[in-house]
Amino acid sequence: MKPMLQVKNLNTWYGESHVLHGVDMTVGEGETVTILGRNGVGKTTTLRTIVGILRERKGQILFDGRDMMTVPLHRTAHAGIGFVPEERGIFATLTVEENLMLPPVVARGGMSLDEIYELFPNLLERRTSPGTKLSGGEQQMLAMARILRTGVKMLLLDEPTEGLAPVIVQRIGEVLKKLKERGMTVLLVEQNFRFASKIADRFYLMDHGQMVADFPVAELPNQMPMLHKVLGV
């Protein structure tokens, strides 16, 4: 499989504190990869560093063969990386449709507005409401939908199921499967283990700012004792 994202010896700092200690990881084209790990081990930091929001960083990030370390934040999306943050980032002063249309289209191959409304009929009904008047689940749908319009090649998702009802979680899983069929590469941070095991091709386990294990979904049963130990679940 052709690698889409290659991260080598990535280090990140928040001022004085050193948070990522040499992260190495690879995500292949069309692959769905999940990062597991306890709270505070650096999962969100990894995503935010790859996107380029955190810039006190050293190491190598290659995306689609391109060195991303020197790319300014507002060009990351144009290179093909879309980001859905943990807090979802729905704008209160924008309507649902304005939120949806906000991220600029960076390449062909994104979904049209009609396709998005077909996939998320709730958003069509609520299109003139302020973005933050939606329910938590709808906001998560909107946060994902607006990135799907842009034609990015890879989606970075930070805990999409956090705090959502099981039926919504299931819906998000269906959406991610559909994206996979379309060839989208996905890097997911997820605490919901059951959810992740249904959609991921491969897992990374993160601890103390490093990747400590890497295994495909088929090996999951064998890895369970180790996971229990590290995750404390």
């Binding site: 929001i53 999306a77 002063t93």
Partner: peptide, 23 residues
């Protein structure tokens, strides 16, 4: 459209920039 960029960037400039807008 320009106004929606302005309003969004007023709320969360970093995210708007991560979406590809030259904030």
């Amino acid at each position: 459209k320009l106004g929606s960029y302005l309003r969004a960037a007023t709320e969360n400039p970093v995210l708007v920039q991560a979406f590809g807008v030259n904030v």
